[in-house]
Amino acid sequence: MISDRDKKIIKHLQEDLPLDSRPFKNIAEKVGMEERELLKRIEEMKEEGMLRRLGAVVHHYQAGFAYNAMGCWRVPQEMIDEAGKKMSCYREVSHVYQRPSHPPHWPYNLFTMIHGHSREDCEGIAESMAEETGISEYTLIYSLREFKKTSMKYF
């Protein structure tokens, strides 16, 4: 169970951190704890895996990341772990997830997010991933329009 105090901390920490000298003091006051206590708890939340990271969330497009492809792969069950691990080693690949396939419309069960300078770049990365893992059945899907992109607000 998440304590009420943690919930309060999360509620504030998921918002934009103020751009003033003592941003954590500001949050600590609202939560009703000492600044030093809050910093210690944030550190613990990180260690416990509750907090993935604290810092800037960048817009990939504005930062120059024009092309990202969702690479979807059809991987035989017994090869999933090996393929997943190998694909995770690519610097250009940010996310690797196994998900259920829905045959016959959707035979793919391994999802990767591939980032490149151009479409050709993404294709080249996918080709080397295919070569290295031996998984030749895949599709690259590009986003055409962003309808929504927000951070989750918990509690």
């Binding site: 999360i10 920490l13 998921q14 918002e15 934009d16 951190l17 751009l19 944030i42 895996g49 509750m50 907090l51 993935r52 990271r53 604290l54 810092g55 800037a56 969330v57 960048v58 817009h59 504005q62 930062a63 951070s151 989750m152 918990y154």
Partner: peptide, 10 residues
């Protein structure tokens, strides 16, 4: 360029 400075939770 940056959307926010904050925490990303699991």
């Amino acid at each position: 360029l940056i959307r926010k400075i904050g925490g990303i939770f699991n």
